[in-house]
Design a protein around this nucleic acid. Sequence first.
DNA 1: ATGCGGACCTGTTAGC
DNA 2: TGCTAACAGGTCCGCA
Length: 271
Amino acid sequence: MPELPEVETTLRGIKPHLQGKTIDAIIIRDRRLRWPVPLTIRKKLAGQLIDNIDRRGKYLLLHTQVGTVIMHLGMSGSLRVIDSAVVPEKHDHIDIVLENHKALRLRDPRRFGCVLFTATDPLKHKLLADLGPEPLSDDFNSDYLYKKSRKRKLAIKLFIMDSKIVVGVGNIYANEALFLAGIHPRRAAGKVSRESYEKLVTAIKQVLSAAIKAGGTSLRDFTRSVCKPGDFKQSLRVYDKKSEPCPVCGKPISHAVIGQRSTYYCTQCQK
DNA sequence: ATGCGGACCTGTTAGC
DNA sequence: TGCTAACAGGTCCGCA
C-alpha cells in the first residue's frame, strides 16, 4: 500500500496526536517484522517525550531524548492513532501507548515493515545513510539525475526506483512519471537525454505532489480509520491498465515485467 | 561499482 | 462453488 504519498499522508495524520506526548508503554505483540523488533525499546522509551516525528524517504522517524524509532510500512503496513483500549486485530503487531490512553498502532499483515531504534543520529543509520535526495526537494533536479545516470545501463525505471538515486519513487509512480515524460521504461538510464530528464523530474514531482494532495483531501480521521488508498487511483494513467486505451493516443497499454515488477506503458507515446 | 535475482510474508484475486 | 496459482503499492542482501 504505502508509496511516498501514503507515508506522507500518514505522517501528517498522526503527527498532531504524537508530538509533545509522552510514551507510557510499548506493546510488542509480534516482533517478527522484516527485522526483529528490539525488545529493549520497551524500557528505553517508557516515559519518554516524543519531541517530533518526521520522515526520510519512506522511513518514519519518531524522535525522543534518548533516541529515534525508525519505522517503515513495507508493502502492507499502516499506522493509526486509536484508543489504547480498542481490541487489537490479527495483524496489529505494535502499539506505542501514550499517556493519554491513545496509542499509535502498527498493522502489517505481510510484515515487510520494520520498527527499529537508534540512540544516535538516525540519518547515519545504515538504512538511511546512503539514501538519495527527497524527490520534492530542489536537490532532486535534472542536472543531478543526468550526471548520476551517465554510463549506467540499468533500465530507467529501475534507476528512478533506486533509493540511492532518489527516495520515494515506488512502482506506481515510476510507471506514471515515465508515461508523462514519454520515456520507455526499458531505456538505459545512461541513454536518456538531458531534455528527457528535465521532463522526467517534472513528472515525478508533479505526480507525487498530486498524490499527496489527493491523500490530503481523502485523509480521514487517523484516530479511527486506516489510511485508505483514496482518490488518487482514479487519476492513474497507465498503472494497472493493461490493454486499456492510452489516454493520449488510444493505443492499448502494454504490460511487461521489469526487475520483477509490473510495468505499464504506451509503446506509441514512450520511446 | 553495477546489475541481477532471491528473499522475506499474508491476503486477495484470477483462472481452471 | 471451490481449489490453486499468481500477484500485490518495498527494499535489502548476496552473488557474479
